[in-house]
Simulated assay, not measured.
Amino acid sequence: MDKKQRVEAALQGLPVDRVPVSMWSRDYRREWSAQALVEATLESYSRYDWDYVRLTPRACYHAEGWKARYRPADNGATPPILESTPISRASDWKRLRPLEPDQGAFGEQLLALQLMNHSLGFEAYFVETLFNPLSVARYIAGSVENVLHTIHEDRTAMHTALRVITETLTSFAIACLEEGAHGIFYSTNGWANAPLLSEDQYREFGEQYDLELLDAIKSRSKLTILHNCGPQMHFDLLAAYPVHAINWAIEQEGNPDLLDGMRRSGKAVMGGLNTDLLRTSTSPQQIQENVAEILEKTGTQHLLLAPGCTLAPDTPTRNIEAVRRMLA
């Protein structure tokens, strides 16, 4: 099997010659330009020979067009730092206007996808990372608390903003696919979790906007991945989304394991690898034992091996290599 055939078979629950695998992290120094981001992504792909690739741009790129100002940290281990936000009161959300998908930071990402497609498009599937509207609102406002405040104090203002953000993200997602991305890595970023929003609250402020975007791309995307961070996720709500695979951290409290998630969703599952273990283990053998345990419990069909969340930049390469050697 070639890489694309392996991934397609896994998505469909068909036999594979081996389980497809990939991992991803952020390069906080090189994520500020399309060229450098692509170079960092391709270096990882070439070094580890991944079966599929996730492009991991700076998280704040979604918000920059709405005049949220971020700057790189002084070291390569820290995410971008917020300098200013256009949101100082709930009524400010009503001032947001739709953005063009080819301008500013969005245009930068389209250039990155052109470069990725030129280098990798025929060889392996690659996907662009896109946060859901609530997550983008968080980066515009600068904090989760600011978004929650508006949800509780001025629902109309929040819905007005989410409508504008959804319109922009939908246009951008379609543009990503037109530029060669095979799919979208769509992250709810922990919003679909009981500690932040109840299931009813997420249905109101999350689900309807998620589905609008996902429905718009479902006939165009070959690999739509739904990612959710954190504990106590509303798994069954998310499992009904029109996506090809679901990615989450099985080790987080209240989350299903891979096999349970596979059964409940009827979809391919992507994950299994514990990011904390990968970062802290001093024994590559321990990492390989973790992989063997995943494969024994879950089987080799409907599975794409991956981390449950983005790897920390300081994750030891020996641990990443240990995973890859298990799936040679």
Rank of each mutant, 00 (worst) to 15 (best):
E251Y: 13
E251M: 05
E251H: 06
E251N: 13
E251C: 04
Q252E: 14
Q252Y: 10
Q252W: 09
Q252N: 11
Q252R: 15
E253Y: 09
G254R: 10
G254M: 05
G254E: 04
N255I: 06
N255K: 09
P256M: 00
P256T: 00
P256Q: 01
P256W: 01
P256N: 01
P256E: 00
D257T: 10
D257H: 10
D257F: 03
D257L: 06
D257Y: 05
D257N: 15
L258H: 08
L258Y: 01
L258N: 07
L259P: 01
L259A: 14
L259K: 12
L259G: 02
D260L: 15
D260R: 15
D260W: 08
D260H: 14
D260C: 15
G261C: 11
G261L: 14
G261W: 03
G261Y: 05
G261S: 12
G261P: 12
M262Q: 07
M262V: 00
M262G: 02
M262F: 04
M262N: 01
M262S: 03
M262E: 02
R263S: 05
R263G: 10
R264W: 09
R264Q: 06
R264N: 05
R264Y: 05
S265L: 09
S265C: 08
S265Y: 13
S265I: 05
G266V: 14
K267Q: 08
K267G: 10
K267W: 10
A268G: 01
A268N: 03
A268Y: 03
A268M: 02
V269S: 00
V269L: 10
V269F: 02
M270F: 02
M270N: 01
M270K: 00
G271E: 00
G271L: 00
G272C: 03
G272F: 12
G272Q: 06
G272V: 03
G272E: 01
G272D: 06
L273G: 04
L273A: 10
L273S: 05
L273T: 07
N274D: 14
N274V: 00
N274M: 04
N274P: 03
N274A: 02
N274Q: 03
T275C: 11
T275M: 11
T275G: 02
T275D: 04
D276H: 11
D276G: 13
L277K: 13
L278I: 03
L278V: 07
L278H: 03
R279N: 10
R279M: 07
R279S: 08
R279V: 00
T280P: 03
T280Y: 10
T280D: 13
S281F: 06
T282N: 14
T282M: 09
S283G: 12
S283M: 13
S283F: 14
S283N: 14
S283W: 13
P284F: 09
P284T: 08
P284Y: 09
P284W: 09
Q285R: 13
Q285W: 11
Q285D: 12
Q285V: 14
Q285G: 08
Q286C: 12
Q286V: 12
Q286F: 07
Q286P: 12
Q286I: 12
I287V: 14
I287Q: 09
I287C: 04
E289R: 15
E289C: 13
N290E: 15
N290G: 09
N290I: 00
V291A: 06
V291L: 04
V291H: 04
V291I: 04
V291W: 01
V291P: 02
A292N: 14
A292F: 06
A292M: 10
A292S: 14
A292E: 15
